[in-house]
Amino acid sequence: MALLEIRNLVVEFGRFRAVDGVDLTVEAGEILCVVGESGSGKSVSMLAVMGLIGWPGKVSADVMRFDGIDLLGLSPRARRKLVGRDIAMVFQEPTTSLNPCYPVGWQIAESLRAHNAVPRAQVRDRVIELLDQVGIPAPASRLGAFPHQLSGGMNQRVMIAMAISCNPRLLIADEPTTALDVTIQKQILDLLVDLQSKRGMALALITHDMGVVAETAHRVQVMYAGQMVEEQPTEALFTKPHHPYTAALLAALPERAMGASRLPTIPGMVPGIDDRPVGCLFNPRCGRVQEICRTSAPPLIGEAAKFRCYFPLGESA
């Protein structure tokens, strides 16, 4: 049984569907990357899992189960017990996600106290141990430091320490390295993958950076305009993308276009609230568009490689 299983997740803000029928499964101990451009609904779908979508957002799903527990039927009180303990999240901007008014040691201890994870007398030792695990030098002397006294990379380590404090089984990381420099990004990614393999926890990594996907993921989901358009194991996705959007996204990377002077681009832009196309959401920008794409939305097909396209690329048949 999958650790996290979601079927037909829909998140609506008024008349805008930010997430439109997304299926998502995360197995225990795997790294799933959710990749997409801004506005593709990748962050919102994860916030929905955490139960962090507030008014006026509306969340619905056919199935939303974590380790067999139905998340939608749970009372808010029971859900709060689960979130932060078994499912934890790391956010994008470490410096704004941390509370500037409290020392980082106190903020890490807060989640330990809220979930009664360790006896009170041991909280301090546990915080030091956590800071050490995420690679902060001289952890005991950092307990009293405020977020503004630490660098962005150090703050992100604090966020990770906070997230893993109660030994979660699923860690959701929402663009954990986007605000950081490449050398720091590498350190944080190495740390996340290391923690994931040592603790056997599942990691759901949201990113827009194909490089990050290639370096870390076991399995990849590509999101476009609120829908999942393709899902494949990492290596297959990079060598044999089926959906034209995935292929175009890969081709637009400067690293892949070595030698060519012009980069292949995707014409147009992601549809907004008022110009959502009929049929396949990608049809106005797609190079392989046919009549049927403009009238009916393609279903999600395939077994090992799932995709949402009538005329997929790289079909041998």
Partner: peptide, 15 residues
């Protein structure tokens, strides 16, 4: 170090 830290878009070359 900068080149090594930049993620490659080829999953077969994980550094």
């Amino acid at each position: 170090m900068l080149l090594a830290a930049t993620p490659s878009v080829d999953p077969r070359h994980r550094k």
